[in-house]
Structures are given as structure tokens and as C-alpha cells.
């Protein structure tokens, strides 16, 4: 990676406690993110991808309800050092949020305040982090709305969220997230609720903004087509753990973890459209309940490379391969050969 290291996550683990029972939502997550890079976090419901992103933002409930362990280091935009995100006092964390690291959510309608105009919400965010006059903040808001491709931005300042379409709301959310030029943007399924045509526009927009600002993007999604389109690197999560991490092309060409392989195989191929080439490959079974993960490898009940006596007994570690990939599977060396 060419750019400067912006974010370094090591052994991040999140567990929730309720009525005495402790459930591990996420464990043993480590990754690094460099300037200008897009990391796609892929996973299904309960895989822990959203919890991970909330932990990076320190937006999870406080202890003792929720325990966050490990380390999250974020480059300080103003200074030169790394900030220890998990140890920062809350007031300082508030300054970091939005300023250094910002987030865009799946459903813009619920993350925007319905009774405030778009303009008011954006100018508030701007003035929270950058002291400037109301007038100047408004001009800045117009510039941002224009940047994210909202037509007639000055008129849109007075619009309420419900007056915008889904795609426009998502653009407004992105504008708000970008208002303080964060170095890291977390986009949590930002296109899942949108039509494909609008999804294409938003992906295009994110790519363009990234080129302009050099920010790093963590893109959370379950759509492998979107991953192929925008990611530099991919992190696949299953049942609260990273199961595979690699650059996008090698991952798609030779997935090492059977779950990744199954996911890629189960997507219908567009180039065979209309030929009805038999049944699709389907991973059997169901996504495990994160509160009751299977013993051993969490994927073993559904795995087509299951080895009895090993996979259901021994929990695999995240191994690093020679070419810098990471994989969590007891049998991966057999798949390379």
C-alpha cells in the first residue's frame, strides 16, 4: 500500500453482557487501513461487521453492558501521532468522530433528523468541528452538496429529509460525513436500500470523492458485485471473526476459506443469463446464531470441506500466508496445493 497508515486495529473484541450471560459479538479482528484505500468488510447478518464499525467509532454502549478489548489506533489529522481510540476520554472522542473518522449508514431516512432541514443539519455538523460563521458554514454546505452531486444545492438547504428521494438522502448523508474531511469514512451498507441505478451513482460518487480527498473507506456490504467494483482489499467475516483477508483480485480468483469460496460460487453468473445452467451452488444450512456459535470452526456445520474430528473440535487461528493473505481454516494449505 502506497499511502500512509491511517488506522490500525489489533485483536479487537466486543462482547455484550445481559443478565449474567456474556456473548462475544466480535473477536480477534485485526487489520490496517492506508490512505486512499478501500477495505470491503463482507459478512451476513450476525457476522459482526456492523458491531466492528461501531466499535471503531466508539458508538457502542458503555461497560459493563458492552466490553471492548484490543487496540484501535487512528492517525491524528492535526498532529503526527496515532490516537488510541479506545482509551480517549469521551469529550476528545467527540472531536475525533466526524473530524477524523465519519460514518454513513444504510438507511439515510432514520439517520437524518426528520424535523430539521438538510441545510441546518449539515451546517451544524460543520460548525461543531470547525468554528465559522453561520453564513460561511452555509456556503460550505452548498459546496458539499454540490460535491456529492445534488442538483440546485442552495435550494436543497431548506428541504426536509422526507422531501428528498432515497438516493438524494444518501448523498446528503455523505455530504454531512465529509463535512470535516475525515481521513477514514465507514460506509455501512450505504447502497443496500437503493436501486441498482442509484447504487451505481453512489459507488461512482464514492470513488470520485476518494480520488479527490485521499480518504480511506471501510465499505461494509454483503453484495459481492459491489465488492468487486470498489474494493482494494476484502475482509470476510463469519460469526464475529475475520475468516479471510486478501486483495480483491486474488480473493475472487482463489478464495482459500470454504465460506468465501461458497459465497462466490453461489452468486449467479450474469454471463450465463438465460441458459439456466442447472442449480446454483448453495451453501447449506443457516447463518449461526451469534449467541450460540458452533464449537470448533463456526462454519463447520455448513462446510463442504469438513473434516470430522478436526473442524468441529479445534478452533482455527487466523493464519498468514506467504503472499500476505490471511485465512482462518485448518485445511487451507490443502486448498493452495
Amino acid at each position: 500500500m502506497a499511502g500512509e497508515l491511517l488506522l490500525e486495529v489489533e485483536n479487537l473484541a466486543v462482547s455484550f453482557r445481559s443478565r449474567g450471560a456474556v456473548a462475544d459479538a466480535v473477536s480477534d479482528v485485526s487489520f490496517r487501513l492506508h490512505q486512499g484505500e478501500t477495505l470491503a468488510m463482507v459478512g451476513e447478518s450476525g457476522s459482526g461487521k456492523s458491531v466492528t464499525s461501531l466499535a471503531l467509532m466508539r458508538l457502542l454502549p458503555d461497560a459493563p453492558q458492552c466490553q471492548v478489548r484490543g487496540s484501535v489506533k487512528l492517525r491524528d489529522k492535526t498532529g503526527s501521532g496515532m490516537l488510541d481510540v479506545l482509551a480517549l476520554p469521551e469529550p476528545q472522542m467527540q472531536a475525533v468522530r466526524g473530524n477524523n473518522i465519519a460514518m454513513v449508514f444504510q438507511e439515510p431516512m432514520t439517520s437524518l433528523n426528520p424535523v430539521k432541514t438538510i441545510g441546518a443539519q449539515i451546517t451544524e455538523t460543520i460548525r461543531l468541528h470547525r468554528p465559522m460563521l453561520a453564513r460561511a458554514a452555509e456556503d460550505e454546505a452548498v459546496r458539499l452538496l454540490d460535491l456529492v452531486g445534488i442538483p440546485a444545492p442552495r435550494q436543497r438547504l431548506t428541504a426536509y429529509p422526507h422531501q428528498l428521494s432515497g438516493g438524494m438522502r444518501q448523498r446528503a448523508m455523505i455530504a454531512m460525513a465529509l463535512s470535516c474531511e475525515p481521513s477514514v469514512l465507514i460506509a455501512d451498507e450505504p447502497t443496500t436500500a437503493l436501486d441498482v441505478t442509484i447504487q451505481a451513482q453512489i459507488l461512482d460518487l464514492l470513488k470520485r470523492l476518494q480520488e479527490q480527498t485521499g480518504m480511506a473507506v471501510i465499505f461494509i456490504t454483503h453484495n459481492l458485485g459491489v465488492v468487486a467494483e470498489i474494493a482494494d482489499r476484502v475482509m470476510v467475516m463469519y460469526s464475529g471473526r475475520v475468516v479471510e483477508q486478501a486483495d480483491v483480485v486474488p480473493l475472487f480468483q482463489q478464495p482459500l476459506m470454504p465460506y468465501t469460496r461458497g459465497l462466490l460460487r453461489s452468486v449467479p453468473r450474469l454471463d450465463l443469463a438465460g441458459r439456466r445452467a442447472g442449480a446454483l451452488y448453495a451453501i447449506p444450512g443457516n447463518v449461526p446464531d451469534p449467541r450460540r456459535p458452533p464449537p470448533g470452526c463456526a462454519f463447520h456445520p455448513r462446510c463442504d470441506s469438513f473434516a470430522d474430528g478436526r473442524c468441529n473440535v479445534e478452533a482455527p487461528r487466523l493464519d498468514s500466508t506467504a503472499d500476505g493473505r490471511q485465512v482462518r481454516c485448518l485445511r487451507w494449505p490443502e486448498f493452495v496445493a
Binding site: 436501486d195 441505478t197 458485485g225 467494483e229 462466490l264
Partner: peptide
């Protein structure tokens, strides 16, 4: 043409030209 070209292809080596639709329905 536009709708079908907007569908993302799950293959990072394919870069196709896309007919981007402007605006919303």
C-alpha cells in the same frame, strides 16, 4: 441498457463501461 449495465459484476478483473443514469425515477 442502463438498468442492466448498472448491475455490479462480481468479478474485479472486469471493468465495463457503464451507462450511468442521471437523477432519480
Amino acid at each position: 441498457e442502463a438498468l442492466f449495465s448498472a448491475a455490479p459484476i462480481p468479478d474485479p478483473t472486469v471493468r465495463r463501461s457503464r451507462v450511468l443514469l442521471q437523477g432519480d425515477i
